[in-house]
Computed example of a mutant assay.
Amino acid sequence: MYKFELSIQSAETYDHLLLMLEEAGAGSPPGRLYHVAYGPKDRLKVVDIWDTPPAIDRGQFQEFAETLVPALKELGIVLYEPDVHQVHTIIKSKRTATEPRRRLLVKFDPPGMTAAQCYQIAESLDEAGLGAPAERLYHVCYREGDELRIISVWEAEEALRAYFDQLVRTAVDLGLTEVAQTEPVIEEVYHIIDGSH
């Protein structure tokens, strides 16, 4: 997984970047599963999920970078060093969005969450019928050091809140106090590209 932070003066500049990449044939590069731009429109952040290591082995990410970097320079966009993390799990909604709606990106970073705890919580949520909510478009669990982190994209804030309320109750029942006390960070999504088809 690649997490980028871009210093962009306006959403229009980001839109122009997408147009430049599309015209160069790099709008949906092979190997990239998801692209989400989120946060304030004057300092957008980007999460790209790549099919790694195959995408890296085939040089797909490098080919994309050879188109991306000159476009960023031409537009005066500052690209900070990307954070690269190993993806642990990806869950995609079984449905596809039919109309543009308000979307939210959720970052959930409970300290010390292990893979075993993540599986325990996932099993309990499945048993409660909340394992794969239709309003959650993507769910990516990735490693940062020895800990797991979660990024998900939602179409409905009410469903998101219900899911996290159940997650907290589940964590309390399992004795995972730090997980239960961690508040998710929620930000507006500006743009999504789904290349997972």
Rank of each mutant, 00 (worst) to 15 (best):
F108H: 14
K94E: 15
E157N: 09
S124D: 04
D126P: 02
A71R: 10
V179G: 09
Y163M: 02
I8F: 03
V179E: 07
V179W: 07
A134K: 12
P30Y: 05
Y34A: 07
R101L: 08
E155F: 07
I8N: 03
V46F: 13
Y190Q: 11
L75K: 01
P70T: 06
E63V: 06
L130D: 03
T52P: 01
R149G: 03
E188R: 12
P54Y: 03
S196M: 00
Q86V: 12
L176P: 04
I56H: 11
I186E: 14
L105S: 06
E127Y: 04
P111V: 00
E188Y: 09
M113E: 14
Y14K: 13
V46I: 14
K94I: 12
Y38G: 01
V140Q: 10
Y34F: 15
R103F: 07
E157R: 13
P133F: 10
A171I: 07
H16E: 15
P82G: 09
D194E: 02
L130S: 06
Q60V: 04
D15M: 11
E135L: 05
A122F: 03
E74W: 00
L75C: 02
F108N: 07
S28M: 04
M20I: 03
Y190L: 10
E178V: 03
R32S: 05
Q60F: 11
E5C: 00
K3E: 12
R169E: 14
L104H: 15
L75F: 03
I193S: 13
P70F: 07
R136M: 15
D194N: 01
Y138P: 02
R101Y: 10
E147R: 10
V46C: 15
L33F: 12
D146A: 07
M1A: 11
G31R: 10
G145H: 04
H197V: 08
S7A: 09
F61A: 11
A156E: 15
A26Q: 13
S7W: 06
E135W: 02
A116V: 07
F4A: 08
E135F: 04
I90H: 05
Q9Y: 03
V78F: 14
G27T: 07
V84P: 04
Y38S: 03
T89W: 08
Y14M: 08
E12V: 09
L21Y: 02
Y190P: 03
G145M: 02
E188K: 11
A65Y: 13
